[in-house]
Amino acid sequence: MLAFLFVDGLGLSADPRSPLRQLELPTLRALTGGFAPAARDAPGVAYRVLDAKLGLEGLPQSGTGQTALLTGANAAALLGHHQGPHPGSRLQELLRERSLQVWAVRRGLRVLHANGYRREYLERLRGSRRNLFSAFAYAAVAAGLELLPLDDARAMLPAFWPEPEQAGERFAGMAGQNDLLFLENWSLDYSAHREPERLAERFTELDRFVRGWLEAAPQATLLLTADHGNAEEPWHTAHTQNPVPLLVLGPGATTVPAMASLLDVAPWVREVLDAGR
């Protein structure tokens, strides 16, 4: 059982102005060695630092970064540039063929995309002539998964949790009912672009969410990672070329190999889920 907590726009920075250095964030700081610049392992914990540039110049973007995470294929190299935020036709084809969601459903695994959406937003997504889905949502639909309205009992708020620890505990409980569970948290990237003055709240929510997961002590493994940097440098509103963290908590932590980039995540997830069958 593996729960994939995707955090949009979370990079790593050693700059003393960074929220990673300014804020307490006790849970994440303890698990990552203070957001260390190199990999580390501890009992039940694996931490890796992943390159998000995918070998291309320019600023990494969500469409190509998320597609790389979900497929293990270099989506940016395929296009010859970084693309975001909504995958175009070539990335859509890649997600239909190779995404973790499609792969897992084909193997008969229990898969849930836990994000809750406003019903009017779902209607807008479905009614648009061009793709407005993120790579995670597009892959879910491609796999035949349902996008859940917020009032569905299975749905979770993707961010802005009133009680972050309770949300983390709930996510842990849901992980025990699924082989592969996804939650796409976009609040750091959103706030970094539009309301950087609220980033401290968003980082604190994430820290408390992870604390709630740990306090629930589930048998499932939690994977937390990102597609590109952004929120770690709130003194501007652009993406960054910084690496991103990968944090694995639980039984699967002992199986995490050395990793170099976003491309290494999907192959490991497939190995873990195949081994658990």
Rank of each mutant, 00 (worst) to 15 (best):
P245W: 05
L206S: 02
M174K: 14
R202T: 04
F4P: 11
F35Q: 06
Y138H: 10
L78V: 11
E233H: 12
V7H: 04
W235G: 04
T67W: 06
W103A: 02
L199I: 02
L69N: 10
N74G: 08
W235H: 03
Q219V: 03
T71H: 10
L59R: 08
G250S: 13
A192G: 14
L246T: 13
A217S: 15
A14H: 10
T64R: 00
R98I: 09
A36H: 15
A143H: 07
Q166Y: 00
T225H: 04
A39T: 13
E201Y: 07
F171V: 06
V102C: 09
L59H: 09
E233V: 13
N178P: 01
R194P: 00
H86K: 06
F133V: 03
L188T: 11
T225Q: 06
L5N: 04
R208T: 04
V45K: 01
Q241S: 13
N230W: 01
T67Y: 06
G127T: 12
W213A: 01
L95G: 07
E197W: 03
A36M: 13
G34Q: 05
A77Q: 15
H236V: 08
A104V: 13
L263M: 15
L214M: 12
A52G: 09
G34M: 11
G252V: 05
T255E: 15
K53M: 12
V49G: 10
R154S: 14
F160K: 01
P234Y: 01
A38Q: 15
L183G: 01
G276D: 05
A258W: 14
P245H: 03
V111Y: 07
L95A: 10
L147K: 11
F171N: 03
L181N: 02
V49Q: 06
W213Y: 10
F6L: 11
A39R: 15
T64I: 01
P158D: 02
E97S: 13
L54E: 15
E120M: 08
G84E: 08
E97A: 15
S187H: 11
A260P: 03
L263G: 15
V210S: 06
G116H: 11
F209E: 05
L54K: 09
G44N: 09
R194E: 03
V141P: 00
P196W: 01
H193Q: 09
A36C: 14
V141S: 00
A36K: 09
A159G: 04
F6R: 03
R154F: 15
R129V: 14
H228G: 04
R277Q: 12
L180I: 02
L181D: 04
A153Y: 01
P267D: 02
T71K: 08
E57N: 08
N242D: 08
G34T: 10
L56V: 02
L28T: 12
A238D: 09
M156D: 04
H236T: 06
R124F: 12
M259L: 07
G127A: 14
R119K: 13
Q66M: 13
M174Y: 13
E232P: 12
F209A: 08
S62K: 02
D227M: 08
A275G: 14
G127S: 15
D274G: 05
T71G: 13
L132G: 09
R154H: 13
